[in-house]
């Protein structure tokens, strides 16, 4: 049966940009909700990665005797895991943001993309705190930041684009298939080892390096380490493939979310 397409005109529909206050309010609520009724509150976002780092540092350097060539292992690990934690928590948060807040979209008309974006913005705060902790960690270990440190800044955009793209993609698909949640968890478990977190890219077999660096998070971590510790501006051949993948993920994420969002209030 063919049905003529409906025509709906709202003369006062606002754009996503006009909802930035809602985005910040939701992000603030997300952060407060996470630390509600916890004594240490926001300090958890410092403690958590630090304890993780301590465990990995002890196991890998004292038990397995992994040599760390460039910087102390704790610094190497922390500089990687802060991006990894940002990416995984942002995607996980964004993925559940629509399915857990159906009550909002049924009752208010607003660009639904605000929900996943707000949860990604909320995780950026943790990342910003981690960045400060990294600087403190560096001075603790006597690691001087290289003058090329500025080159790490554009890589933040790459990590952000990858997180937004993957977050929108999974948020949209998760409303239709809850399998996406399991798939994402599995890929994070594998991805942790396929991302240069507990090792440096140099240690990876050169033959497969190109494939490793296709992962935007891997490219970001690698580039950041080069800029911060090695004193070299990351070469384009190392970061460009990952950047292109991040852009592709962003485009796919935005397109799929736009396509799927009309069905959200019906399937949820």
């Amino acid at each position: 049966m063919s049905v003529p397409a409906p025509v709906v005109i709202f003369t006062h529909r606002k754009t996503l940009w006009q909802y930035r206050r809602l985005l910040l309010a939701l992000a603030g609520r997300d952060i407060r909700a996470r630390y509600r009724q916890s004594f240490l509150g926001v300090y958890w976002s410092v403690l958590n990665p630090l304890l993780q780092t301590a465990v990995y540092a002890v196991v890998l350097t004292k038990v397995l005797h992994v040599p760390s060539e460039t910087v102390p292992f704790a610094v190497l690990y922390f500089s990687g895991v802060m991006y990894w934690n940002f990416f995984t928590t942002a995607v996980t948060g964004a993925m559940g943001s629509v399915t857990t807040q159906v009550n909002l979209l049924e009752k208010h008309r607003f660009p639904i993309a605000v929900l996943p974006l707000a949860s990604i913005v909320a995780r950026s705060l943790d990342f910003a705190i981690s960045a400060v902790v990294l600087v403190v960690l560096c001075s603790w270990y006597g690691v001087a930041l290289a003058p090329t440190a500025w080159a790490a800044l554009p890589l933040l955009v790459v990590a952000g684009a990858a997180a937004v793209g993957a977050g929108l993609l999974t948020a949209g698909l998760h409303t239709l298939y809850r399998d996406v949640g399991h798939l994402v968890n599995l890929s994070f478990t594998l991805g942790f080892f396929l991302t240069p977190i507990i090792y440096d890219v140099v240690a990876f077999p050169p033959r497969y390096r190109f494939w490793l660096l296709l992962n935007p998070v891997a490219a970001t971590i690698h580039g950041t380490r080069l800029a911060l510790f090695a004193g070299t501006v990351p070469p384009l051949e190392d970061v460009l493939p990952g950047t292109l993948v991040a852009i592709a993920v962003l485009v796919i994420g935005v397109a799929s979310f736009r396509r799927l969002q009309a069905t959200f209030t019906e399937v949820l």
Binding site: V3, P4, P6, V7, I9, F10, T11, L105, H108, R109
Partner: peptide
């Protein structure tokens, strides 16, 4: 309110909405 899309027909809503 614009939170559900119709399957058919035409709808014009003029003005800001509070729900």
């Amino acid at each position: 309110a614009g939170t559900l899309a119709p399957t058919t027909g035409t709808l014009v809503v003029r003005g800001t909405i509070s729900t």
